[in-house]
């Protein structure tokens, strides 16, 4: 049975209403926090609670001033380079660990040990071991995100369906084809999750690394703002990273929606 035109228009209006309600429910918490902050700015000095207008002026200034924007881009570059490095090393280690029990037994405790070392300790080690800023930060980023990438990819490899693997193996694929048709699609959802989780971690770690061991980047700029008690500047620089993480997460979600369109969608949510 097909819907009549008024019914269809009613359904479309309902769908639009649902989208607006959902969008509003996402935005509402931010509006509340911003409102409370703005009220506080009327009662406290600017070095404690600066007006949001001042903060967003600084945000805009950073975005349109190349000297400052280049610091943001440097930090983003460091995050992405560190994550990419950790992902490729971690994925390679995970494949080795999945294939060999003895490699797994040998590497697991080492990675667990790494996980227990605080990010700040890696910063100190990096400053002692490396001379250049970039090698230092790359090292810190890799060391702090490597264990989680490795364990997440390893978990994905170990959790692959034995039935499906056996089925694909029955067609006797080459190793490259096995990776392409079976392993990569099977572990991709976990890889995407790993990237989402590590993106947040990396953006926190990179600030610590730049704060102590760099002469540029968002972390370094935050240190400058702290030294002059410029809260508006500190917030503006922090927001640059927050925006980056939000945009990156949105890009990952967009990719997920395309790549995982094969998944069944249940009308009843968890």
């Amino acid at each position: 049975m097909t819907m009549s035109e008024p019914q269809a228009a009613q359904e479309a209006a309902k769908a639009r209403g649902a989208i607006w309600r959902r969008a509003f429910s996402y935005i509402l918490p931010f509006i509340v926090v911003a409102g409370l902050w703005q009220i506080a700015s009327r009662f406290f000095p600017p070095y404690l609670f600066p007006s949001l207008v001042d903060v967003f002026k600084r945000v805009f200034e950073i975005l349109v001033t190349w000297d400052q924007l280049s610091d943001v881009l440097a930090t983003i570059g460091r995050i992405l380079a560190g994550l990419a490095g950790a992902f490729f090393i971690g994925a390679a280690l995970a494949v080795v660990m999945a294939r060999s029990q003895s490699a797994n037994r040998f590497l697991s405790p080492i990675l667990t040990l790494f996980q227990g070392i605080p990010a700040l300790s890696w910063v100190v080690f990096a400053i002692i071991w490396f001379h250049g800023v970039e090698p230092r930060i790359f090292f810190i980023m890799v060391m702090t995100t490597l264990p989680s990438f490795t364990f997440q990819v390893l978990g994905a490899l170990q959790g692959m369906s034995r039935d499906l693997t056996e089925m694909v193996m029955s067609f006797r694929p080459t190793r490259a084809k096995l990776f392409r048709v079976m392993i990569i699609p099977a572990i991709l959802p976990d890889i995407m999750t790993a990237w989402k989780v590590n993106l947040g971690n990396a953006s926190r770690v990179v600030v610590v690394a730049e704060l102590v061991g760099a002469t540029g980047g968002v972390g370094y700029e935050l240190l400058q703002q702290q030294q002059v008690f410029d809260m508006a500047g500190a917030l503006a620089w922090t927001l640059q990273l927050v925006f980056f993480v939000l945009i990156a997460q949105a890009v990952l979600t967009f990719i997920e929606n395309i790549v995982f369109r094969y998944r069944a969608v249940s009308e009843r949510t968890l």
């Binding site: 039935d163 499906l164 029955s170 006797r172």
Partner: peptide, 15 residues
């Protein structure tokens, strides 16, 4: 390409 298998469950790749 010389041996083909039909399994108890369909074992289709969901992607």
């Amino acid at each position: 390409g010389k041996i083909a298998i039909v399994f108890q469950n369909d074992r289709l790749l969901p992607w």
